[in-house]
């Protein structure tokens, strides 16, 4: 097990290294530079600034400087925000994004399991048909539309109630988190519902469920002890990619709900070609996702004993 985790971590570090390298050169291929938006730019000021930030060096030298600093855990200082280090930006805003992401994942996973189990139990009856139509909607409608529609619905609801039931945007209270988490997790939840439904039906037809019935177990016991755990397994596999989807989707949703998360800085940095922020956030997100995928695999091993020893 330790050996397995170790090799996965080494692979992960390599992955992050490649992400960093690719992003670095791609970023430098984009025309323009971080200083292009600055006002009152004379050639002298520009030369001074370029020297200050090391932009006058060849790209390869910049690359090696960046890599060295990154290994030391220093992503540098933002080009566009005065005196703010990238590390500060991450430590200040990532917790917000993380809370939102965790809520969205929880909402998606619990909802997916619940609705999936329900549709499987009522297969080909009306609850199944209704939910499956909603699932297709949920998968195909992009989350910024869901976010906007949910805001519109909330506004109307608040108006109807004559009081503010849910805040439409902002951050701070738990009530602020409900709408964005739901908008963010919806498509993942819809996808998980489908997966769970199929998985439940597969497991329901399996030989070991027949055995469980032949043993005279109660339906509730068969469901909890035998069906649920085995049906959830395939869902865990896609939890890694789902986390990635939710994190990247978070950029847009954060913007719509005016949430001070990391996503907004990422988008802004790309627009302004803020080299250090782009690199810092890409490497950070890359490392985060790689870590989550490894964590999911380890969790998978804990739930499915067949995986545990196979490694």
């Amino acid at each position: 097990m330790k050996k397995y985790i170790f090799s996965r971590v080494v692979q992960g570090i390599l992955t992050v290294f490649f992400i960093a390298t690719a992003t670095f050169f791609a970023m430098h291929l984009v025309p323009g530079d971080p200083l292009m938006d600055a006002k009152a730019m004379t050639p002298e000021i520009r030369a001074n600034l370029e020297a200050k930030y090391g932009l006058d060096q060849p790209v390869l030298v910049q690359y090696s400087t960046f890599m060295k600093n990154m290994l030391l855990g220093d992503f540098g200082i933002s080009f566009t925000q005065k005196n703010r280090s990238v590390n500060d930006i991450i430590s200040e805003h990532f917790p917000v994004s993380a809370v939102l992401g965790v809520l969205a994942i929880l909402y998606a996973a619990l909802g997916g399991i619940l609705w999936g189990a329900l549709t499987a139990k009522y297969r080909n009856k009306w609850p199944d048909h209704v939910i499956m139509v909603l699932v297709i909607l949920g998968i195909s409608v992009p989350n910024f539309v869901v976010a906007a529609v949910s805001q519109w619905a909330t506004v109307n609801l608040n108006e109807l109630a004559g009081t503010s039931i849910l805040p439409v945007a902002g951050w701070g209270e738990f009530s602020n988190m409900i709408l964005p988490a739901m908008a963010l997790g919806l498509s993942t939840m819809a996808y998980l519902t489908r997966l769970m439904r199929n998985s439940m039906l597969d497991v329901g037809n399996s030989d070991y469920i027949r055995t469980a019935k032949a043993k005279g177990l109660k339906a509730s016991r068969i469901f909890v002890q035998h069906e649920l755990r085995n049906s959830v397994l395939p869902l865990i596999t896609i939890l890694g990619p789902a986390i990635a989807a939710i994190t990247t989707g978070g950029f847009v949703v954060e913007k719509i709900f005016a949430i001070p998360g990391l996503g907004r800085y990422f988008v802004q940095a790309v627009q302004q070609l803020d080299y250090t922020v782009i690199m810092g956030l890409t490497v950070f997100y890359g490392a985060f996702l790689v870590f989550m995928v490894i964590a999911v695999d380890v969790i998978y091993g804990l739930i499915d004993p067949r995986i545990r020893l196979a490694k």
Binding site: S206, D207, Y208, R210, T211, A212, K213, A214, K215, G216, L217, K218, Q225, H226, R229, N230, L233, I303, D304, P305, R306
Partner: peptide, 24 residues
């Protein structure tokens, strides 16, 4: 019927490899 199954009548099946819950 449930209380008879497994208690009064036992049953064994064809393929042992798939007849037991793989995660229990």
């Amino acid at each position: 019927a449930r209380s008879i199954r497994g208690k009064e009548i036992g049953m064994i099946f064809q393929d042992p490899m798939s007849s037991m819950n793989p995660t229990m």
